[in-house]
Amino acid sequence: MADDGTWTADLAALEPGTWRTYASFTPDSGPGKGKDFVLSRTVTVPGDAKKTPLPKAASSTEVDGYTVTVKGVLMAGMAHPTAVSISKDGKPVTDLQPYLDTYAHLTAFHEGDLAFAHLHPETEAKGGNGGPDLAFQAMLPKPGNWRMFLQFQTGGKLHTAALTLNVS
């Protein structure tokens, strides 16, 4: 944050097209103290843009040798218990490290209008390790395809798993 209160962030080079950036934060002082905020802005990168369809809906994916599996049926407009399980080489992962005060961050974007949701597991990260199962109360407002990104940390390295889920 700059002295004038503006924030900047370096981004990796983006492909040509229209992108949406999001900032999610909770002020620790001032009139918005303790409230969750999400700001977003459209960014356009000039050039020949190519539309890329979402990958098909699937309940599991792999990243960096880890398998991430989502369990539970997501239903639009209602909080629903959802579990994410993380394994490696067929064995449960129990060495999840706290990252930004929690064992995982689950961010979801709705196909078509880019509605946004950011979720944390119900288990508090009070030191030590977590895993392999992380319980969430997922409330996604609309039916359709949601692109989800789960960030988790092991061995000091951040991993980001991406998968598409269909919400009925």
Rank of each mutant, 00 (worst) to 15 (best):
T8E: 12
A23I: 07
T21R: 07
A58L: 09
P31C: 12
A162T: 11
F136G: 01
P92D: 08
T102A: 14
L158H: 02
P55G: 15
K56A: 15
D101F: 02
L140Y: 00
G128V: 08
E124R: 06
P27M: 03
T26P: 01
L134M: 10
D36G: 13
K33N: 13
A115W: 08
G130D: 07
L74R: 01
E122C: 02
D4P: 05
L158R: 03
D89S: 14
A79Y: 01
S168D: 14
L150G: 11
K51Y: 14
A161K: 05
V43Y: 07
T82L: 14
T42C: 02
K35P: 01
A57W: 00
V70S: 00
G77V: 02
S168T: 15
T8W: 13
G72E: 00
S87L: 03
S29V: 11
T42K: 10
F25W: 06
F116L: 03
T82F: 07
M139I: 08
M1D: 14
K33D: 11
V63W: 01
P16E: 04
T94Y: 04
F136D: 03
A135D: 14
L134A: 05
A57R: 00
Q153A: 15
D3S: 13
D48T: 15
G144N: 03
F37T: 13
L54N: 02
H105A: 08
G5S: 02
